[in-house]
Design a protein around this nucleic acid. Structure first.
Lengths: 250, 250
DNA sequence: ATAATAGTGTCTTTTAGACAATATGCG
DNA sequence: CGCATATTGTCTAAAAGACACTATTAT
């Protein structure tokens, strides 16, 4: 018995109806100080006209490649472009409840992305209207994308605690104040400037100095700030914990 | 244009060849003090005779249900059984590289389980030989299951730090020493008894006293230990961090 | 000049971890 | 009895967090 026919014998199409696999991407960025997510307006049924996460079917490629391809298509960035390469992408989790898509059984592998400031999306080719939306204003997404977004936000908030990925929201050089603004936007909390500053510099490998400073002070005054780039740490130790949330413990 | 036909128009079978979706389960338990994983011997090609994670095709059910069903089938536990209900199961991540299964494109949604001591698996019905193996002895798994297992172990180790899930490896009542043995087995490190004891009791909601003690002391002497059950915390705060691994930070 | 901000200093509280001490109960 | 173990005590170091202070620069 050949491998193929044997497999098909095990694979009873009645018991296992055909399944589609898609990737959906939660790409986050900071725009005007607000944590924002890339959404597209659906052109077709179901959920026509509703906002949804960018995504599409997986082709003959890895899941990671599918996620990056979808991201490129929806942002209108060229695959080789530097800005695209600087987006951090990681798998979030998969969603496969029967009925989550009314058309057929669809398993969606969701990805989470952290992007530096990007140009406004160009509705490149077949892509529907895409735009950045502050996450606080988002509601009534298509499919179960509201749940996916919520899971992505929680992952992002947790990730900033123990990984240096906050720097993925910034350019190659940044000030401690800019880094603090990322944490404030993602966590939705103000952070104490002095303590944050000392803490960041005390974590080995989080950031390294460039030796340079900004060419001018802040908008409303203040000294020039030193510039840093991302260090070589992959884990923050000790971690930068969110302000105590005793309430959320139980 | 109907919803179905419209979908099919978008879904070009050339560009998107048919895909199978499976669940694979990394179930961990503590046996004789060693962290162990449930594996099955493959009866069929490919990888005939090799050990693999238990798993199978997703039917008309949620992914979570599929994982619990596969777990029940491979352990021989009845679906309604109490022991099965006490197994903690959570989604790990998905694996979908083209070529990871030589027969066709297979996307596998992996689950991670924490089980209390279970009876030896009964090769229930069509299930292949299943048994528990100490994770340290495992090698050469079928497919990419070695990678899946490694990811599951890392998740389990991290999870013990900030969640009370270590108690899922134990019965409903346990001593602090038993809990410490779980941490030692999963992390592969000895922990200081005195400091561990005080730390566990200091974390709000981690464990609560039953007021009872064991009926006799340890095998080789010592006083009777107090018994505890799992508390109502879902997050440990402050967390129980692994002994410093400065080395692994970069 | 005024106000805002970068960066540093100081102090208190919490937590981690090393180590010791005491009491209990098995063989 | 002798030893292993449960539990508690003590002390030190690391880290978190509150708050104050100085220097710098935009307006």
């Amino acid at each position: 018995m050949g491998v193929e026919s044997q497999f098909l014998a095990e694979y009873d199409p009645t018991a296992y109806p055909s399944v589609a696999v898609t990737v959906d991407v939660v790409v986050l960025t900071i725009r005007d100080g607000a944590l924002s997510v890339l959404l597209v307006e659906r052109a077709e049924h179901p959920y026509q006209g509703r906002l949804a996460l960018p995504g599409g079917f997986v082709r003959d490629e890895t899941l990671d490649e599918a996620a990056r391809r979808e991201l490129a298509e929806e942002t209108g960035l060229r695959p080789g472009e530097d800005a695209l390469a600087r987006v951090h992408l990681e798998q979030l989790r998969s969603y496969g409840d029967p009925g989550r898509d009314p058309r057929m059984r669809v398993i969606s592998v969701a990805y989470l992305g952290f992007a530096p400031s990007l140009p406004d999306p160009q509705a490149g080719g077949d892509a529907a209207k895409a735009a950045w939306f502050p996450v606080e204003t988002v509601r009534d997404l298509a499919f179960d994308h509201g749940l996916v977004l919520a899971d992505g936000l929680e992952r992002a908030r947790a990730k900033l605690e123990y990984s240096p990925l906050a720097t993925a929201f910034l350019g190659p050089e940044f000030t401690i104040a800019e880094l603090r603004a990322v944490y404030a936007a993602v966590w939705g909390e103000q952070l104490h400037a002095g303590n944050f500053h000392r803490k960041v510099l005390s974590v080995p490998g989080f950031v390294e100095s460039t030796g340079e400073t900004t060419t001018r002070g802040g908008e409303r005054g203040g000294p020039r700030a030193r510039l840093y780039r991302t260090g070589d740490a992959v884990l923050l130790h000790p971690a930068l914990l969110r302000p105590t949330r005793e309430e959320q413990v139980r």
